[in-house]
């Protein structure tokens, strides 16, 4: 099976929800008629949409499109019933098994390891830990004494251009804080070496670019200085920057509120 990138995946989703224009829809359909692996990937996306609908994981507007467009054929309605039965069976039969097999958490594992050690080892380890922590504090304090703490929020992309209540994170900007550090989780299947432009927009859609402080394969970190942001609702848009400096917007937005 081919692994299609997230932009192609979004395009297939748009096709399945009846949101592509005729030219783009034709491109998808021609590929369906000529590429077996793409057809299989298409079926996986159909199943994902079906499961998300059954699991009530879609935004209201996508849910409506599923009902109005995606589920018109009896084949899709049969698929929906099958998905409902399968997910229910999984929850009933394997939900209990999963709960029984829950791995002990980090604290439980550390506690188990700690109590299995001899008294002398525990004493020596405690002493070494105190020395290390004290050393780190001595090194860190001069550098941080004059700077307040950044408010922090990590955001995931919402596959919608409108904020939905449960998805909006709130970040509290305390007096004296130098600003907000925002960690943006990148959508899966984007190329790891991709360049981006990050755009912050307020309620009035006034936009400004944010400097990327850190980038890994999975996330971007940007900082908004405190004097450039006030309480209100904001959203962040992400643009993939191509080597020729052209840009392509990544579908969806990151929403948050500042208090």
């Amino acid at each position: 099976m081919v692994i299609i990138n997230s932009s192609e995946k979004n395009e297939v989703k748009d096709y399945l929800l009846g949101q592509l224009d005729e030219t783009d829809a034709e491109r998808i359909e021609l590929r369906l008629l000529s590429d077996a692996a793409f057809g299989e990937e298409f079926d996986v996306i159909v199943n994902e949409i079906t499961d998300d609908y059954v699991g009530d994981e879609l935004h209201a507007d996508d849910r409506k499109r599923v009902q109005e467009y995606f589920l018109r054929s009896t084949e899709r309605q049969n698929k929906l019933r099958f998905a409902g039965g399968l997910l229910e069976r999984a929850a009933v039969e394997r939900g209990a098994a999963a709960r029984e097999q829950v791995q002990p958490g980090l604290i439980e594992r550390v506690h188990a390891f700690w109590t299995s050690q001899s008294l002398l080892t525990r004493f020596a380890t405690t002493f070494a830990a105190i020395v290390i922590v004290a050393g780190v504090l001595l090194l860190a304090i001069p550098g941080t004494r004059n700077s307040g703490t950044y408010a922090f929020v990590n955001l995931s992309i919402s596959n919608s251009d409108r904020a939905v209540g449960s998805e909006i994170k709130t970040v509290r900007l305390e007096p004296g804080s130098p600003g907000i550090r925002i960690e943006l989780s990148l959508p899966e299947q984007l190329p790891p070496s991709q360049s981006y432009r990050v755009e912050l927009r307020d309620e009035k859609e006034v936009a400004r670019n944010l400097k990327i402080e850190q980038q890994t394969e999975a996330k971007l970190v940007v900082v908004v200085p405190a004097n450039e942001i006030s309480p209100g609702s904001y959203f962040v848009r992400l643009y993939a920057v191509n080597p020729d400096r052209t840009e392509q917007r990544i579908r969806g937005s990151y929403f948050f509120t500042v208090r």
Binding site: E29, L32, L33, A36, R72, S73, E75
Partner: peptide
């Protein structure tokens, strides 16, 4: 093989366009 791909693609296309008995 091409015929099979075309037929499977047509079925996916008809279902996606809301036709039952694709």
């Amino acid at each position: 093989q091409r015929y099979e791909v075309i037929r499977a693609g047509l079925i996916r296309m008809f279902i996606s366009n809301g036709l039952s008995d694709a």
